[in-house]
Nucleic acid binder design. Structure first.
Lengths: 301, 301
DNA sequence: TGAATCCATGCCGTATTCGCATGGATAGAT
DNA sequence: ATCTATCCATGCGAATACGGCATGGATTCA
């Protein structure tokens, strides 16, 4: 590669024009005078014409040098811009992170984590997509997004995840419900109650039904729905008791709704998931850290 | 000086993004694949974050790399612009040359030399100033201009000159003048003729008067003037015979004027003059070459 | 399974780079 | 007029960077 322009030499050149002496220019860069002098001499050899005339021991710039000066400063400015952009990227002051999560996650806790993350990295552009569990996994695997939240088990090729939260289940019901005074609820006490259940056909749903059947209770799955938000809205209307993820339900506990622990303890574990190859981006790693910190702070289990 | 960005590494980085493989990027710069690979690795170490993720033996750019790419290309463009400007300056495709000469020179032969010079170096900006001999010298010495033309001897400190033309003297008179048929003219034949002489008080003027007095003739210096142009204009009106520099008079030989050699041969020698320190600029040297070439072509003596 | 492609790294000779020491020249001060 | 402070250039030696060669691991495709 036919020797490129020497950036330092250009810097020295510009500094020498600004300061007037080689010695001062060198000092600006922590170089000794001889090193500076030689860099200039070498630059002149490289470009093929003199930049300074030696007049009684002093350097006086040629008109050619004056011509060059402006362009050199522009070019150096461009390089410095790259340097500062590099610094910004390194310190997460700029960047982009695309996330995806199921609606229950992206409409519940995710906004709060995002808020905490953006507070730390104001320059980062975040995009949050809300998709079904299956689409979520597919998007991450296809690298359409950088990372996402998925309920364990993942059971999808080329994805890796790290568990970030592990919460129990709660029954969500109106405060004036006849069961509202209980410390917790189990299949026996829910016998005959209209229930609002999620994820018809999924593993978590099968788990709930299995718990009921082990207790010899046939659950009255009056309403099926697919998001915690709608399940809670239905419960708020007094249409039944929703059995949902404790953590994700928390943001919807309003309109006179309360939550009582569901026994036995059905755990819901969520993981921060990225494509196995290539690994998570730096910003994704930072978001993972922020997520874990947030759950630690919020004391969710 | 805290290690600057490595330009070659940036070029390799951009080329790798464009080509997709390190091998191809290296080939673009005549580098082997290992050298290229190491340059990239070193760049990543320098900037502190990964630019490529190694996915099954292939490089896939990170989003950070994408962010950088645009700025890097801009910066490289700036540097390349400097490189092309350097090439232009080196080949005299751009530049500026400030000249000064006495009116007789700058209004006579100089425009023709300038035309020849500009034909060779179309990109160069020329400025031509027309001043008295003394001011001409002062401007060159003060570096207000890059070079000028001065009649020898120079007799001025801090100036150096190189002779470019050495011409004789001619008598300029109307074609129908009674002396127009002579092969040449001398003080004896000019006895009693009204004369138009230049440079009252200068050395060249004293020379002419001395030649006349040596011939025992009292010159009839009917009119004094200061430019060859006006001397010729006066001669054209039939007001007398002008004794002037042969070379410089040539452009004014119209309106029925003719020139006859003046004997004895009074030489006029002009030099291309620059400040002694610092020496002539590169463009000044080129102009000197062009000037000598022009006089050689024009066969002036 | 084998060939082709791609990337990473150890090794080593060479070229560059920089500080130190030195010397020459100039301008300003005593 | 001499002395001093500055400024620039260059020889020298050590540390460093650089780049090619050889090699090896991993992946893809036929």
């Amino acid at each position: 590669m036919k020797r490129d322009v020497d950036l330092r030499a250009l810097r020295i050149f510009a500094a020498t024009l600004r300061h007037g002496t080689v010695t001062a220019a060198g000092r600006e860069f922590g170089l000794t005078q001889p090193a500076t002098s030689r860099l200039l001499a070498q630059l002149e050899r490289d470009i093929g014409f003199e930049l300074f005339l030696r007049d009684r021991g002093r350097l006086v710039p040629t008109t050619d040098a004056m011509l060059l000066f402006e362009e050199v400063e522009l070019a150096l400015g461009g390089v410095d811009h790259v340097k500062s952009l590099v610094a910004d990227i390194a310190r997460f002051r700029v960047g982009r992170l695309r996330l995806v999560a199921p609606p229950s996650f992206s409409e519940g806790v995710l906004p709060q984590i995002v808020a905490a993350f953006l507070a730390r990295f104001p320059g980062v552009h975040l995009s949050v997509d809300s998709r079904s569990i299956e689409t979520t996994k597919a998007m991450i695997a296809a690298r359409a997004v950088d990372a996402g939240f998925v309920k364990l088990p993942i059971d999808y090729p080329d994805l890796v995840g790290e568990s970030v939260v592990n919460s129990g289940s709660v029954c969500v019901l109106r405060g004036e419900h006849r069961l509202a005074g209980e410390r917790d609820l189990d299949p026996l006490r829910l016998r005959g109650e209209p229930l609002i259940l999620l994820g018809f056909g999924r593993a978590s749903r099968a788990e709930i039904e299995s718990v009921f059947s082990q207790a010899g209770v046939l659950p009255d799955a009056r309403i099926d729905t697919h998001t915690i938000s709608s399940a809670c809205a239905l419960a708020a209307r007094g249409l039944g008791i929703a059995i949902v993820n404790a953590l994700l339900a928390r943001p919807y506990l309003r309109d006179g709704l309360i939550a009582l622990p569901f026994k036995p303890d059905l755990r819901h574990e969520y993981a921060f998931v990225t494509a196995a190859v290539p690994g998570p981006t730096r910003l994704a790693r930072e978001f993972l850290l922020e997520t874990k910190a947030w759950f630690a702070r919020s004391g969710a289990t």
